[in-house]
Amino acid sequence: MQLAARIHELTKDYVLKGETVRALRGISLEIPAGDCVAIMGPSGSGKSTLLNLIGCLDRPTSGCLQLGDDDVSSMDDSQLSRIRASRIGFVFQSYNLIAQLNVLENIEVPLYYRGRITRHERSRCRELADMVGLSDRLKHRPQQLSGGQQQRVAIARSLANDPDFILADEPTGNLDTQTTEDILDLLGNLHRAGKTIIIVTHEKEVAARARRIIRLLDGRIDESLVQ
């Protein structure tokens, strides 16, 4: 089985006002390609830190992190940027769309940082907007959309660069039940289409949809469940 990510003895320390916070204290984990993983745990347990490391937003203090065949833990800032631009799609709790851009432009942003935008890619962005059901609002600004619609734009955006990973940090935290269902259906479709999905969540209903649940406690893996 091909591995999407291999994590070995990963640690991360933060220094806050001269005090060292040990956010991750040695995590070892293997995520097969096409898997759907939910990361749970109380706040402060290191969920978001782990997601940020996998998403190449941050570098580990020690340990090894491989995405596919690349050893990410030893890369410099610009190499990490390139990995993020080409292989990772993010979905955030607060959507984080860029306010001054319209729906279509928001979806195109990751392509822009990857280099040239071809006509084919641009039409694919329209297809993505169509897929998340927003083809009639391409010229709307984020503040003209509801929370669920914004999150759907964010999911379309995360798919723009055709990434291996979709990393979702509490994607349904700000949404009502019905909209949560819609978003989870969308993510489920992506899973079935072969994307590797990692979701950080508090909610049991969300985690229940994942194939595998990992519980963190104090920077260590407390429990790993395969459903």
Binding site: L57, D77, S81, A85, S86, P110, Y113
Partner: peptide
């Protein structure tokens, strides 16, 4: 700052 963070997450390098 927030917009910068988002753009970074979407693959922007420092120089971008």
């Amino acid at each position: 700052t927030r917009e910068i963070g988002v753009r970074r997450a979407l693959g922007a390098s420092r120089s971008n």
